[in-house]
Design a protein around this nucleic acid. Sequence first.
DNA 1: ATGCCTAATGCAATTAGA
Length: 256
Amino acid sequence: MRIATYNVNGINGRLTVLLRWLAETQPDAVCLQELKAPDEKFPEAAIREAGYGAIWHGQKSWNGVAILARGSDPVETRRGLPGDPDDNHSRYIEAAVNGVLIGGLYLPNGNPRPGPKFDYKLRWMERLSVHAGGLIGTDAPVVLAGDYNVMPTELDVYKPERWIDDALFAPEVRAAFFRLVEQGWLDALRHLHPGETIYTFWDYFRNAYARGAGLRIDHLLLNPPAAARLKAAQVDSFVRGWEKTSDHAPVWIELD
DNA sequence: ATGCCTAATGCAATTAGA
């Protein structure tokens, strides 16, 4: 079973690229982020025609997350991260697909730091940790997949010294990420590729993809039952080279 | 310190991304 995460940066502006990638790689489940569309503008018919059932939590202009399942309908278990009734950003959706519980998340960017957006990011990470703490011990496989907007280590940044004050790489953000991981989650890509330079995002600016100036910020975290079934993990970086593409590439794992 | 690029909104220029 292949489970992928892909920050599409606009589901409608990206539909051609998304459908091409689905047709070429046929993932079994997909978490999408940055739909940048309200619920009524989600391209449900086109995605169903491509062979995928879907659930989504949209929002006008910004944010928005979805889960797709090839040949079935995801069984929604939650929309919205608990812990703050005043948080109206669409950044979390959760569903069961083929016996695997999948949480799809779009963690706040947090820039500029310091400031209210950075504070929101840290609060959101604490809420995620609380929710994840309730999922880690599930007997079934659980996968928390999405755009975490965090580079965990220096290996995950093309120029670490330039990012140290940024909300994606600041010490307190990395510490919050590791507090989450230390509940017992496995960073699937890093686990299977220790020491390897892996990026999932390349800025549109300054020809970053061609220069190899990337970041690893899209992650799949696995609870122990999921980790026991992990066979492969990769980035479909070739998609970043397509026309009219997202600034993120799809990332996926293969479970037995 | 800012623009470099891109999407959405909505039709110009702003907001946000990372």
